[in-house]
Amino acid sequence: MKRPWLVGAGLTSVLVLTIGAAVAVGSTATAWADVYQVLAHRLFGLGPAPDPIVDRIVWRLRLPRAVLACVMGGGLSIIGVAMQTLVRNPLAEPYILGISSGASAGASLFYLGFLPPLLSKTLTMPLAAFAGGLASITIVYLVARDGVRVSVARLLLAGVAMSALMASITSFVTFSSPEPDKLRAVLFWLLGSLSGARWGLLPIPAVTTALGLGAMLVLARPLDALLVGEEPAQGLGMPVETLKRGLIVLATLVTGTLVAVSGAIGFVGLIVPHAVRLLVGVPHRRLVPLSFVGGAIFLCWADLAARTALPGQELPVGILTALCGVPFFLALLRQRAYQFG
């Protein structure tokens, strides 16, 4: 099935319904009618003012969380696409390659006061996460590079190793800090959670994700060529080395700002692009926007499950994405089409 407009329209309507569900469902049941009343009033000034308690739940708690889930899921998915194109293998993903845990380590070092606040706190945190992610992926990439080629097997192994190292750093600094709730903080950074969502946290990740989305749409054709191979892309007049470096920086920037607000949520960028490729094919001009929408849907539902699976408490959403993602990763590994070269 390769009818991109139909799939796009379908996915977009599913996303609208998903956001509605994410706002309506939770520990306090909210009627859909009340949800629409709050949204109509808040967004368009229509209708009577809603009940202040309902308004608080819908507008202050659940909607920013649903929007963050969309930004996070969409952003991680398109960065998954970027990394897969960079190494020309569908097994690459920011979490698997160690960017996410590197960003977590950077963010937690800053959060616990080990790094100086260079700018305002809201800006330094993503910056620290970016630096951590960049350090991690640079090491992974240098280890995996074999002359001019990148060995995928080495890339994955180096990614796993750096992930473990960065997770240890995060855990170590957290446990050695005066943070009152150490276990909770470690879980937040390593497994990811959207529980901290507030409107005020959204602008930075939303802007960098939009930037990433825009850049990847503009670069859709060069990215297609890169997928065929570095030599063919060069032959088509693409500045391949610049493109590759740009992709790494872009991926790290977006991942860093996302991790800074939600911790490291894994495997979204692995599952979503693969599913979208099956629906609309490989070309980036379709894959990138639809992966964004698909990722938003996926993470909204994962977060909804994380909030409601256990009565009276919340799971870090990364547990659920890993539960879906790891079997998926293993299945991909078994597929003969994706050889290690």
């Binding site: 032959g235 094919g281 490989v282």
Partner: peptide, 25 residues
């Protein structure tokens, strides 16, 4: 135009999409 020695492409582009890429420049 350059035809390099064979490179591996694992992603399911259609044949026509691969050829159309030649028009990119």
């Amino acid at each position: 135009a350059v035809l390099p020695q064979q490179s591996q492409l694992h992603f399911a582009f259609s044949v026509l999409q691969v050829v159309l890429m030649g028009r990119t420049p």
